[in-house]
Simulated assay, not measured.
Amino acid sequence: MPYLWMKAAHVASVLIFIGGLFSQSFAVAAARRGDAAIVALAHRWDRRVTVPAMLAVWLTGAMIAAEGAWFASPWLWPKLALVLVLTGLHGVQSGLLRQLRRGQQPNTRLHGVMVAAFISAAVIFIAALVVVKPF
């Protein structure tokens, strides 16, 4: 796949993945207020859309980094660390949605607004690292 098409696929996958992370955090917040229908919808969306987008982010990102010889670039490593944290957050939120779908009330301190703020900040830092390449 040509480099620019790979980058386009990566950007599209990132947008879908980040949207899915926001959806998860809002669904967890809504479920705590007793909205079970939102949890079921978010769980299906996560399985069918967000997870494949996350996998595409990692695959296309690795291909772009390999083709562009970016692995030696120092800016890439903090970016990868943030993407790894976002991937972990996805796993945590997926687990919370599973628990909520089973009718369990998870014991967590994650709050939708704080999670959404963290996702936003991470995306801003990632975009700055990728575009500016400060180091």
Rank of each mutant, 00 (worst) to 15 (best):
F17H: 10
A8S: 08
F17G: 01
L4T: 05
A30K: 12
R32K: 06
T60N: 09
S25I: 00
A9D: 08
L55F: 05
E67R: 15
G61H: 06
V51T: 14
R101D: 07
V14A: 15
L97M: 14
G68R: 14
F26M: 10
M6A: 12
A122Q: 10
G88R: 13
Q99T: 00
V83C: 03
P78Y: 06
V51C: 00
A62V: 06
A121R: 02
A65V: 02
A81E: 00
P74W: 12
M1G: 13
S23C: 12
P106H: 13
S73R: 15
A30Q: 11
V11I: 15
L55E: 08
A42E: 09
I119Q: 06
T108E: 06
K79S: 04
A36W: 05
P2T: 10
A69P: 01
L129V: 04
A29R: 14
A53Q: 08
G112A: 06
L15E: 04
P2L: 10
I124G: 10
L41G: 12
L86Y: 08
W5I: 04
A37R: 14
V28L: 07
L41M: 10
I126E: 03
M1R: 08
S25K: 03
W77I: 00
P134H: 07
R109W: 10
A53P: 02
I124H: 05
F26A: 07
A9T: 05
A121Q: 03
D46N: 15
I16R: 08
L84Q: 02
Y3F: 09
R101E: 13
V11K: 04
A12D: 01
W77H: 13
P52E: 03
V115S: 04
W58M: 10
A65N: 11
